[in-house]
Design a binder for these strands. Structure first.
Lengths: 253, 253
DNA sequence: AGAAATCTCGCACACTGTGCGAGCGCCGGT
DNA sequence: ACCGGCGCTCGCACAGTGTGCGAGATTTCT
């Protein structure tokens, strides 16, 4: 017992921001916002404490007064952009549209700040904005008729889809971004190469042959929307089956 | 026109491994496997070219003969572990169990190598193992009755869930790992703190009050399985509705 | 035998996160 | 009016990073 590596104690969220008496020239908030700017411009590798410092007209190590470590700063950054997601008030509208809105909001945020994808897997985020969103999601699902553990399951399903989907999408976008072309232009230029590769994989190759005319740009949005709809259908029908008395708790038959 | 930043040309996959004449003491494969070992032991930050070199009894810069850059090595690494996922042969069993197996296989792989979560969002992976898996998935979905663009949508949905879910799960595990305790022990110790925080969020707080007895360890597996089932239900019912003539292509009404 | 290819690796460069401690200016207390 | 201390800034330094370069060693081809 008595390991002192309590994952929650001494987290950023428990320790209040510094500064009480004198007038500081910086603030946590200011630093976080500047970091996001830098990240949006130059990506995850583009953020260094020195660069961030000089953008704020401050010495690099001054930042360490407000923030214990770079990782901690990134935690704050992630929560900050979580706040960009608009979550409808609990009672509003039917739950399907609310749930879809949340999923789309999350995707939008990730695509606006693609570098988060490298941060999601690092630490769970439990900042106030993330919590606020979780709270709304729980409320929405409860209103929809979910109770107990399935509330957590459904919430996780919804957010996981957004994260997974947008992560993949962000990776793809990043890979074509430096060329300055659209996805379809890139695909067109690479077509001979793709043809050759696809030919080595029977199913994939056949599919590729029969679907040469797809528009990749439009597909991205539709792809995500399709996933959200299917997933909501799945949740809906689980609710329906449960209410019909057909006992199907958590997938057990 | 004529940007030379073609995202595909000069990729790792088009350039064959070196060595034809003399006998090299290293090989790409060997390097990749050692890198995975190191990553499993020390995490993403634990991998440096110098450390990797010394583990292979080679100079750090010798590795650059086999691998153009560290990022490229990581691309190889990701594809290598993609190969760990067992994908059932196309014709086998019904598609639901096959699809579930793939999703669970992917999750298992991510939890075995939690550091991949920091790599997924960086570059799309299109190595042979990833392609082989895509190929099987396409075959499976085609056999299930999907055609055209929805094949891509369904495939993306399945894999996105695995990625998103496992990413979140990996983050959580990483955060409690250094304490050496189980998830439930950690939760129990933090309970007073969580209570306090939860009280600030009405819906979340209420839910937390009414679900104090949940077992977090078991929940992880069930959570993922629940998601997979709902998602397959959603896909299944989309197929059914489509076959019933009720035209619902790609979510359009 | 000589030329060319293949491979190894030490050095160096620019850059990273961050601990330390000296110094600044403002504060409340005497 | 003074002063001790606190809030805050920041230069220096350390250990570490990815990787370009070019000199050397070894093998194979002609």
């Amino acid at each position: 017992m008595s390991s002192n590596a309590d994952p929650m104690a001494n987290s950023v969220w428990t320790r209040p921001p510094r500064s009480r008496g004198a007038q500081p020239t910086l603030s946590r908030d200011q630093i976080v916002r500047a970091a996001i700017e830098l990240l949006d411009e130059k990506g995850l590798d583009g953020l260094s404490m020195r660069r961030l410092g000089s953008r704020l007209a401050a010495g690099a190590t001054s930042l360490y007064w407000y923030v214990a470590t770079k990782d901690e700063l990134l935690e704050l950054v992630v929560d900050e952009i979580m706040g960009e997601i608009e979550v409808p008030e609990v009672e509003a509208a039917d739950w399907r549209t609310a749930a879809a809105a949340i999923a789309h909001g999350m995707r939008g945020m990730i695509l606006r700040h693609p570098w988060v994808t490298g941060l999601f897997g690092v630490r769970p985020n439990m900042g106030p904005n993330a919590m606020r969103m979780s709270d709304r999601v729980v409320g929405m699902l409860t209103a929809a008729g979910f109770t107990g553990v399935p509330v957590a399951y459904a919430s996780s399903l919804l957010l996981s889809h957004a994260i997974g989907s947008a992560t993949t999408e962000a990776a793809w976008r990043r890979s074509i971004a430096p060329s300055g072309k659209t996805a379809d232009e890139v695909i067109d230029e690479m077509r001979p190469y793709i043809d050759e590769v696809a030919a080595q994989y029977p199913n994939y190759g056949a599919w590729w042959q029969e679907n040469r005319t797809i528009n990749v740009n439009e597909m991205q949005d539709d792809n995500f929307a399709f996933g959200v709809e299917r997933l909501l259908d799945g949740l809906q029908s689980w609710l329906d089956r449960r209410d019909a008395g057909d006992r199907h708790d958590a997938g057990r038959p």
